[in-house]
Design a protein around this nucleic acid. Structure first.
Lengths: 191, 191
DNA sequence: AGCTCCATGTAATCGGTTACATGATTAG
DNA sequence: CTAATCATGTAACCGATTACATGGAGCT
């Protein structure tokens, strides 16, 4: 039930409508959680009914009105409680790996195109993350930076470390996909 | 619906009972897919009803009898078809990242214990993977190995490259968790 | 005339998790 | 005597995916 918590975090960072949340889930929050608008609207309703969120109808000109959600005190409490509970380390779900092992019973070479597609997709994601890092965090720490003006705020630092995780994940994945491609080519050539 | 395909791959590698599959999902297949025995039994029944699997009752002494499943021709065809369909690159779901961003609205230092727990869990998994690599694939390629006897079989190679993916993932995760810990400590100290 | 963006929803289905249930054998 | 291993299942629930649905504003 971490979607609730992801929504609480996002709304604490900035209140917004269901639509806006859906867009955030396509961008920054998408580094670590995904959700579609259908899911989000349903959960927002439930959370509002439970008193964890406040809503405010915002009339707009030229656009449909929207409902702006923000975190109410019980929502903040719920998040805080969850933060203090231990959670299980993630288990992975990786379809592509199933395919790779399955290729032993089919034509391994036929997978090359697919793996190349994934490589391109992850490459794009990495570029997108790096652009975001440059935009929001003034790039990777230059070692020779003189006198940064005091400690940066905790929220920024924490967002940045999560983004660095996304970047590390994409880089690792790209390197692994290179390894997979080399293996598939070797199997094709050795045959 | 990749659980079906993971089961097909596993049963092609070696036929077995639901119980045995559940154990494999805790081990090697667990690198890229997880499933509990309840799930597995349900899916096995469905796949057998659909004619994708064959069953054989195997009486045993000293233990309960078991049902050994193996892949029937239509199952092999279904797998083959799936292998030729493109799939979407995975989207990540990472609770811990939600917590890290959420920590900005609570006490960041309180997360240190939790992150350390995750670090230990991933460290254990890495050790387990590395042991498996040594056992099943005679360790990482030694550069000075003279004359390996002909091309190794495709199945082995493909299982190995998937395992290398698991290893790379755990190493990347450990490095990131170090980064997270350093960040949390910095925030605690700078305060 | 057609497409995209903004904005919100309902309904059906399916996959996954959690809890409950049974029962024999073997090792500590 | 207790716990773990082998072996198989049912039932309830919940979260996620997919399809369907509406409707105005603004751009090309």
């Amino acid at each position: 039930m971490a979607l609730e918590h992801a929504i609480l975090v996002s709304l604490l960072e900035k209140p917004g409508s269901g639509y806006e949340l859906a867009r955030r889930f396509e961008r920054s929050i998408g580094y670590f959680w995904t959700a579609t608008h259908q899911q989000i609207y349903r959960v927002l309703k439930r959370m509002e009914a439970d008193g964890r969120l406040d809503v405010r109808e915002v009339p707009q000109q030229g656009r449909p009105d929207k409902k702006e959600y923000s975190v109410a005190a019980p929502g903040r409490a719920a998040l805080s409680q969850w933060l203090h509970e231990p959670i299980e380390p993630e288990s992975v779900r990786h379809d592509l790996a199933v395919k790779i092992r399955g290729a032993a019973f089919d034509d391994p070479a036929a997978l090359i195109r697919e793996v190349e597609r994934h490589h391109r997709a992850h490459s794009d994601r990495l570029a997108h993350y790096l652009a975001g890092e440059l935009r929001d965090f003034t790039g990777p720490e230059a070692p020779g930076t003189s006198g940064t003006p005091g400690p940066p705020d905790a929220g920024q630092e924490l967002q940045h470390v999560v983004l660095r995780g996304g970047i590390a994940y994409e880089r690792m994945t790209l390197a692994w996909l290179d390894d997979v491609l080399a293996t598939l080519h070797r199997l094709g050539a050795g045959h």
